[in-house]
Design a protein around this nucleic acid. Structure first.
Length: 338
DNA sequence: AAAGCCTCCAACCGCATTCAG
DNA sequence: TCTGAATGCGGTTGGAGGCTT
C-alpha cells in the first residue's frame, strides 16, 4: 500500500540516496517545485510527490539551519510550546531555518525529558506534584538553585493550585518593587497562583510575562530575564508597569530573537476589544524602557530572546469570564505567523 | 567481541484542510 | 455546492549508531 497520491505507481521508500537528493535539488533549482505530485515524474525520481516535498522541506532546502539547537532556540521552543502546544509548524515559524519535524523531534527527544527532570509536566508546563513525580520515577533531584526559570504559571488553573500546595514553586513572581517597599503587594512574595489583578487585564494585554527578581537563577544563562528585570525595576518604568510584576506587550512590539527581530502579533487576539483609553495605556507602557514599540524590544539587538512566560488561558479566563474551556484553537489567530 | 538496549531523527502514515474544476 | 486531488500537519515508526553489560 502506498500513498494515495501515488498508489498507481511503484515508489521507492526509505532513506534518500545522494543521487536522489541531487536529482531533486537540480529539478527544483531549475523549475521550482510547482505541483509536488508532478515533481517525481519530471525529476526522474521513483518517489511520491509527498515524499519529495518532505525531503525538500526537511532536508534539502538551502535556507535550512543544520546543527544543534542553541540555548536560545531551546527557550523559544519551550515558551512557544507552552502557548501553542504541539503545533510544531507554528512553533517552527519562530525558528528560522528549523523545520517542524526537527522541532518536534527535538522536543520529544530532549526538551520533554528536560522539563520532566525539572518536575514540570511537558504537556501543561505545570509543576508536577512531588508524589506523582515519584510515582512516575522521574528523576527530580534538582535543587532550587539550579532550576531554570520555566513556566510556573499554569495553563490549567485548576491543577495549578493543587500543585502549588504540594510543591511550592521554586521561582517566585517578580515584583518591580524593592522588597522593603510598602507599595509591594504581599501576595507577590509568595506563589504563582495569583488572581490576575485588574490592573493587568484592564488593558487587554496580549502578552504577560513574569520575571524573577529574586536572583535564584543563574542570570548568565538567561541574561534577557535580567534585562527585563532591570527594566521593570528602573524608576522610569516602575510607574507605568502595573504593580504585579507582569509586563505588557502591545501588538506592535517586536520579539527579538538573536539578530532577527520579528513582529510579535499575539495581541491580535484582543484586537477590536480595546477602547481608546486602553490603547493609550498600552502605548504608554510601550513607550517605557521595556519595549520600544517601533524599533523592537530594546536597542540591544544582541540581547537574546526574553524568557517571557505566558499564561494565555489565564488571560483568556480573565478576558472571557465564564469560558475557562474556551477553545484554544483560536491561538492560530494569534498570528504567530510572522 | 557481541548481544541487548537506548536514543535520535528521517521518513512514513493518515487525517484535516484547501483548492480547483 | 459538490467532489476529488493536492497539500499541510502532527503522530508514529523503523533503523542507524552509540552505549552498556
Amino acid at each position: 500500500m502506498g500513498h494515495r497520491c501515488c498508489s498507481k505507481q511503484k515508489v521507492k521508500r526509505g532513506l534518500w540516496s545522494p543521487e536522489e537528493d541531487e536529482k531533486l535539488v537540480k529539478y527544483i533549482a531549475t523549475h521550482g517545485h510547482g505541483s509536488w505530485s508532478s515533481v517525481p515524474k519530471f525529476a526522474g525520481l521513483k518517489r511520491c510527490g509527498k515524499s519529495c516535498r518532505l525531503r525538500w522541506l526537511n532536508y534539502l532546502r538551502p535556507e535550512l539551519k543544520k546543527g544543534c539547537f542553541s540555548a536560545l532556540e531551546e527557550q523559544v521552543i519551550i515558551d512557544a510550546h507552552r502557548i501553542l502546544g504541539n503545533r510544531w509548524s507554528q512553533i517552527s515559524k519562530h525558528l528560522p531555518g528549523r523545520t517542524d519535524n526537527e522541532v518536534k523531534n527535538f522536543w520529544n527527544s530532549r526538551l520533554k525529558k528536560k522539563l520532566m527532570a525539572q518536575g514540570l509536566d511537558p504537556k501543561t508546563h505545570n509543576l508536577i506534584p512531588s508524589h506523582q513525580r515519584a510515582a512516575n520515577k522521574v528523576a527530580c533531584n534538582i535543587s532550587p538553585s539550579n532550576q531554570q526559570p520555566f513556566s510556573i504559571i499554569s495553563q490549567d488553573s485548576k491543577m495549578k493550585d493543587v500543585s502549588m500546595e504540594i510543591n511550592p514553586p521554586i521561582l517566585t513572581l517578580a515584583s518591580p518593587y524593592p522588597s522593603n517597599s510598602s507599595a509591594q503587594p504581599s501576595m507577590l512574595q509568595t506563589t504563582t497562583s495569583l488572581p490576575l489583578p485588574s490592573s493587568c487585564y484592564d488593558n487587554n494585554p496580549s502578552l504577560i510575562w513574569n520575571v524573577n527578581t529574586q536572583n535564584s537563577y543563574d542570570s548568565s544563562l538567561f541574561p534577557c530575564v535580567s534585562f527585563i528585570e532591570n527594566s521593570l525595576v528602573s524608576p522610569s518604568s516602575s510607574t507605568s508597569v502595573n504593580p504585579t510584576g507582569f509586563g505588557l506587550l502591545d501588538e506592535d512590539c517586536f520579539w527579538s530573537c538573536g539578530n532577527i527581530v520579528e513582529p510579535f502579533e499575539a495581541a491580535r487576539l484582543f484586537e477590536g476589544m480595546r477602547s481608546q483609553d486602553q490603547e493609550n495605556q498600552l502605548n504608554k507602557i510601550c513607550d517605557t524602557q521595556i519595549v520600544d514599540k517601533n524599533k523592537g524590544v530594546h536597542d540591544n539587538m544582541d540581547a537574546p530572546f526574553d524568557t517571557s512566560i505566558y499564561d494565555l488561558e489565564l488571560v483568556d479566563s480573565k478576558l472571557f469570564p465564564g469560558s475557562m474551556c474556551r477553545d484554544l484553537s483560536s491561538m492560530d489567530d494569534l498570528s504567530w505567523n510572522f
